[in-house]
Design a protein around this nucleic acid. Structure first.
Length: 319
RNA sequence: AGGGGUAUGGUGUAAUGGUAACACGUGGGUCUCCAAAACCUUUGUUCUGGGUUCGAGUCCUAGUGCCCCUG
């Protein structure tokens, strides 16, 4: 079944520091569309420098959504993102405009394209706390995995013993629903919209250079002060938002427990790793148009993609 | 210039004369409500030339690079 134009969304993604923001604003300005942020950390208020969040000045009048929609000490989730983002998209479409999703969080993209099977089994803090306590114990990870082996052998078989994060989630779902994680009913099989995806990329070493340069700029812009301000205002260092790159590395530094050199090295290292993981994710993502962000025709290719739907190969391989 | 020391993956280190190891990095991957998270995994090394020895990263020797001391 063909979807109507109003049911199509454009997604510009790519690793951190690949130039998504600038290109997206240029594109949105030229074609009068609205941007929906697809970034798991730019959703937090007061986290601006470390998340490289586009500021009102650089948006050049292009409406942005899903930015600053949560407080740093709030917990957020993919499911919530999916729900809120789809609302934004619906709203944009209702006004007769196109939505351009921009961001590097692959998991969020997948949630939109392939809706969560366990859509109605949300997190249970009590169960998690209980199971996480076990995970910390001597041999606890093995014990959790053993528990899952009993409750849901299929899922246990595909999860590594050390992957207690997912082992716990699987146990949580089993306990909450009484049905094994692997046998949860698929609630929603079809995504609400069709997504036309373009991914920015470039030579790895050049990307890493850009990453490092950007971090130098972040420090110069006052990253340390931003982190200090968050901590001083009562945001816990354990908060989910503070686990973000650029924040978790800065906490020891701001507290005087790490030198600048150590912090700088660690931040750059973690960001490189992150960029690599983002690329890995996108390689797995089906139907993606890859665009070398440093090529002279990068913008033209994106524009062509946006106008003609190049890369929209949902039927399989392109002709 | 003289004396001493040192040389092991990209980096930092380990190895009673007996299969060269560990950490970090690098590369690849996983992902269905914490995802900028969490987890899995690969790769690659004895400075060069001689010598001793069944066998040399290890001992001897020369060269080269680096470090320290003296002048």
């Amino acid at each position: 079944m063909e979807k109507k134009d109003q049911e199509i969304c454009w997604v510009l993604t790519g690793p951190t520091a690949s130039g998504k923001t600038a290109l997206s604003i240029r594109l949105a300005k030229a074609h009068d569309c609205e941007v929906v942020c697809m970034d798991s950390m730019q959703i937090y208020r007061r986290m601006n420098i470390g998340t490289a969040k586009p500021m009102p000045e650089e948006m050049e009048g292009v409406p942005h959504h899903m930015i600053d929609v949560a407080d740093p000490d709030e917990s957020f989730s993919v499911a919530r993102y999916q729900e809120m983002a789809e609302e934004c998209i619906a709203d944009i479409h209702a006004r007769g405009k196109r939505a351009l999703l921009v961001g590097g969080t692959g998991f969020y993209l997948r949630a939109l394209r392939q809706p969560m099977a366990m859509g109605d089994v949300s997190a249970d803090e009590r169960i998690r706390a209980e199971l996480e306590a076990i995970a910390i114990e001597e041999g606890g990870k093995q014990r959790l995995h053993d528990m899952l082996e009993v409750a849901d052998p299929v899922t246990a078989a595909r999860l590594h013993v050390n992957d207690s994060r997912r082992v716990i989630r699987a146990l949580e779902v089993c306990r909450l629903t009484g049905v094994p994680f692997s046998q949860q009913p698929q609630l929603q099989t079809e995504s609400r919209y069709q997504y036309c995806v373009a991914t920015l990329t470039m030579d790895r070493s050049l990307l890493y250079q850009r990453v490092e340069k950007r971090i130098d700029v972040m420090f110069a812009q006052g990253l340390a002060d931003e982190v200090r301000g968050l901590l001083d205002s009562g945001v816990s260092a354990d908060a989910q938002a503070m686990k973000a790159i650029g924040y978790k590395e800065l906490v020891p530094f701001v507290r005087g427990e790490a030198t600048f050199e150590e912090t700088d090295y660690l931040l750059k290292l973690n960001t490189r790793h992150y960029a690599k993981r983002q690329l890995t994710w996108m390689r797995r993502e089906p139907d993606v148009l890859w665009v070398n962000a440093l090529a002279p025709d990068a913008y033209d290719r994106l524009e062509n993609w946006y106008v003609n739907g190049v890369g929209d190969v949902s039927k399989g391989e392109e002709a």
